[in-house]
Simulated assay, not measured.
Amino acid sequence: MRNQKYYIANDEYERRIIINSLNNLRNRLIADGRYSDAIDEILVKFFKASIKKIKRKAD
Score class of each variant (00 low, 15 high):
residue 1 M to F: 05
residue 2 R to Y: 01
residue 2 R to H: 05
residue 2 R to K: 08
residue 3 N to Y: 00
residue 3 N to T: 03
residue 4 Q to V: 05
residue 4 Q to A: 02
residue 5 K to S: 07
residue 5 K to L: 02
residue 6 Y to I: 01
residue 6 Y to H: 11
residue 6 Y to D: 01
residue 6 Y to V: 00
residue 7 Y to L: 14
residue 7 Y to Q: 11
residue 7 Y to C: 11
residue 7 Y to N: 07
residue 7 Y to H: 06
residue 7 Y to M: 10
residue 7 Y to A: 12
residue 8 I to R: 09
residue 8 I to E: 04
residue 8 I to Y: 08
residue 8 I to L: 02
residue 10 N to M: 15
residue 10 N to K: 08
residue 11 D to I: 04
residue 11 D to W: 04
residue 12 E to L: 06
residue 12 E to M: 07
residue 12 E to H: 05
residue 12 E to V: 06
residue 13 Y to F: 04
residue 13 Y to P: 00
residue 14 E to N: 07
residue 14 E to D: 12
residue 14 E to P: 01
residue 15 R to L: 06
residue 15 R to P: 02
residue 15 R to V: 03
residue 15 R to G: 04
residue 15 R to Q: 11
residue 17 I to W: 00
residue 17 I to T: 11
residue 17 I to R: 13
residue 17 I to E: 12
residue 17 I to H: 05
residue 17 I to Y: 02
residue 17 I to Q: 13
residue 17 I to A: 11
residue 18 I to F: 07
residue 18 I to S: 09
residue 18 I to G: 07
residue 18 I to M: 09
residue 18 I to E: 05
residue 18 I to D: 13
residue 19 I to L: 13
residue 20 N to P: 01
residue 20 N to L: 10
residue 21 S to L: 03
residue 21 S to A: 08
residue 22 L to I: 06
residue 22 L to C: 10
residue 22 L to S: 06
residue 23 N to I: 00
residue 23 N to P: 02
residue 23 N to S: 13
residue 23 N to F: 06
residue 23 N to V: 05
residue 24 N to A: 11
residue 24 N to C: 03
residue 24 N to P: 02
residue 25 L to Y: 11
residue 25 L to M: 14
residue 25 L to K: 14
residue 27 N to F: 14
residue 28 R to W: 08
residue 28 R to D: 15
residue 29 L to W: 14
residue 29 L to Y: 15
residue 30 I to W: 09
residue 31 A to R: 15
residue 33 G to A: 13
residue 33 G to W: 15
residue 34 R to L: 14
residue 34 R to S: 14
residue 35 Y to T: 12
residue 35 Y to N: 12
residue 35 Y to C: 13
residue 36 S to L: 04
residue 36 S to R: 00
residue 36 S to P: 07
residue 36 S to V: 04
residue 36 S to W: 03
residue 37 D to L: 08
residue 37 D to K: 15
residue 38 A to N: 08
residue 38 A to P: 01
residue 38 A to M: 11
residue 39 I to V: 15
residue 39 I to P: 07
residue 40 D to C: 03
residue 40 D to R: 12
residue 40 D to H: 09
residue 41 E to C: 05
residue 41 E to T: 08
residue 42 I to F: 13
residue 42 I to Q: 14
residue 43 L to T: 05
residue 43 L to F: 04
residue 43 L to P: 05
residue 43 L to R: 08
residue 44 V to H: 07
residue 44 V to I: 03
residue 44 V to T: 10
residue 44 V to Q: 12
residue 45 K to A: 05
residue 45 K to H: 04
residue 47 F to Y: 13
residue 48 K to Q: 02
residue 50 S to E: 15
residue 50 S to W: 04
residue 50 S to T: 09
residue 50 S to I: 07
residue 51 I to C: 05
residue 51 I to E: 09
residue 51 I to R: 12
residue 51 I to M: 05
residue 52 K to N: 12
residue 52 K to I: 10
residue 52 K to L: 13
residue 52 K to P: 03
residue 53 K to A: 02
residue 54 I to W: 09
residue 54 I to L: 10
residue 55 K to D: 13
residue 55 K to F: 09
residue 56 R to M: 03
residue 56 R to D: 05
residue 56 R to T: 06
residue 56 R to L: 05
residue 56 R to P: 04
residue 57 K to Y: 11
residue 57 K to P: 07
residue 57 K to Q: 10
residue 59 D to V: 00
residue 59 D to L: 03
residue 59 D to F: 03
residue 59 D to H: 04
residue 59 D to T: 00
residue 59 D to I: 00
